[in-house]
């Protein structure tokens, strides 16, 4: 008997909101939602506006460019299914539009990263075969 006894971490990609995010990401586009009533830019994407409680939101594209606020390299202790990817780089990135997110940085070494460094959107494969967002040094 060979039962998969450990559940792997995978994102929700099925709700219309998330499905749209991942469909755009597959075209290398980072998108989120904006409130049509008060204009607030929402991150992560939401189907309502916490500022004015409007449900009228529209999908909007972000530049996908930002800078590193802080970063680390994970050597040990990764969640199930990600152990073989160690070491990997994680960074908090401040997008040009002013929102912060966390993602992996690929195509660079730990010693090459610095706070304030510019990065841009890319895509990487998750252990379940689907895609997730990642970032790489700008122009590399």
């Amino acid at each position: 008997m060979n039962l998969p006894h450990i559940m792997l971490i995978t994102p929700n990609r099925k709700s219309p909101l998330m499905a749209r995010f991942y469909e755009n990401l597959s075209k290398n586009q980072l998108t989120t939602t904006r409130c049509k009533k008060c204009g607030s830019l929402l991150w992560p994407p939401r189907d309502f506006c916490p500022k004015c409680m409007s449900r009228e939101v529209e999908v909007t594209r972000l530049s996908g460019i930002g800078e590193i606020v802080s970063f680390t390299e994970i050597i040990d202790g990764a969640p199930a299914g990600m152990e073989s990817e160690q070491p990997y780089l994680l960074a908090i990135i401040m997008l040009e539009e002013g929102m912060k997110l966390l993602a992996r940085v690929v195509g660079a070494k730990y010693d090459e990263l610095s706070i304030g460094m510019k990065v841009e959107l890319t895509i990487r494969k998750l252990h379940d075969g689907g895609i997730v967002m990642a970032f790489k040094p700008l122009g590399r």
Binding site: I9, T10, P11, N12, M18, P44, S70, F71, T72, I74, G77, A78, P79, M82, E85, Y88, L90, I92, L101, L102, A103, R104, L126, V132, A134
Partner: peptide, 16 residues
């Protein structure tokens, strides 16, 4: 959905 999928760990959060 937004952080664990990238492999964040407790030490990583505090390393930042």
């Amino acid at each position: 959905d937004w952080e664990s999928i990238h492999g964040i760990t407790a030490p990583a959060g505090f390393a930042l």
